[in-house]
Design a protein around this nucleic acid. Structure first.
Lengths: 173, 173
DNA sequence: GGAATTGAGTTGAGTGTTCAACTCAGAATA
DNA sequence: TATTCTGAGTTGAACACTCAACTCAATTCC
């Protein structure tokens, strides 16, 4: 049984079921908090957050899609929604019309500034508080391994992305 | 900085970004495999799988919703779709009309039987292969802690659910 | 310098999920 | 026995995401 390559043993099945539950519960908790407190979904929040960390509050569409972990199409729809609220604006990109950029408006900056502490508090409850520092580091490295198996391209991009986000973030504290 | 309760330190932020990426990549990989190979989404697959592990291939709607980690509404819509394919049927529940049950048809059993090996192979690649047995156990317990923080009710249900699924599953090998 | 190609971004249709409103049967209360 | 209440399930509208088709500008290639 244990050596049966076609099925999963107890421990593997336990892991899989737990992961299923995790994938169900984690996003819905985060989305719930953001919907209630800010009125945006997680992806829209990421878009606003990534823009706010930029000195000129501006990012090229395709770059923004990468750092927010979404497709270009998804971003385009999201930007349309955020535009309707007056939180971002589309602008012709510098250096030719080949690139479109998104700019975070003053209202958008205010929105994300108000939202961030609430969101961070929730993240602390959800991810930081339940685990010790060592456990958190362990979790991060295990998740990275799984990301690598599922999507090597994204995994490699994370090598650059994560330090970038962390570095930018230091300026905001 | 490190003691600032309003923000996240580097390691915490790294963990959060990694988790965001993980929540993006993991479901889409699983959904992709199922869509391609079986033509169902993950939730529909779970519904079929949970029914197939039942001796009478039948489950009450609300119980099925629990074990497949979805809301009753979501399940109702999913059952409608699966019904259209002839893979499940709604039946009046035993003992009064208070409970509706879902029954896995022969065609549905065949579909899940064909699908399972492909799905399991993908799970092995995604979750089992990249980690050692010890790491997998560690991951499971860390995820459980996070589930507990996000949704204590589900966490408690998992205490009963996981052994039940594992036990049923033993019969199918 | 015209034609095909490529890359960035948009759009609309189709699909699945959520949310709130609804139905309906069985229990409880009077 | 009528009335209210509760729990299970369904339904439809609103919304977000995906996917494929499309536009348009910049490049490349004869």
């Amino acid at each position: 049984m244990v050596t049966d390559d076609a099925w999963l043993d107890d421990e593997q099945l336990r892991a899989w079921v737990t992961l299923m539950a995790f994938l169900e519960v984690m996003p819905s908790s985060v989305e719930g908090q953001l919907k209630r407190d800010v009125g945006v979904n997680l992806f829209e929040y990421s878009v606003l957050a990534m823009l706010s960390e930029q000195v000129d509050r501006t990012l090229v569409m395709s770059d923004l899609a990468q750092v927010a972990f979404g497709s270009l199409s998804r971003l385009s729809h999201a930007v349309t929604r955020l535009e309707r609220r007056g939180w971002v604006e589309r602008r012709a990109g510098s250096g030719g019309r080949r690139h479109n950029t998104v700019w975070l408006t003053d209202a958008g900056l205010e929105a994300i500034t108000d939202a961030a502490p609430l969101h961070v508090a929730h993240v602390r409850e959800l991810l930081v508080a339940p685990l010790s520092a060592a456990e958190l580091a362990t979790l991060t490295s295990l998740l990275r391994r799984l990301i690598g198996a599922a999507n090597p391209a994204l995994d490699e991009r994370l090598d650059h992305l994560v330090p970038t986000i962390i570095e930018r973030n230091l300026g905001s504290t």
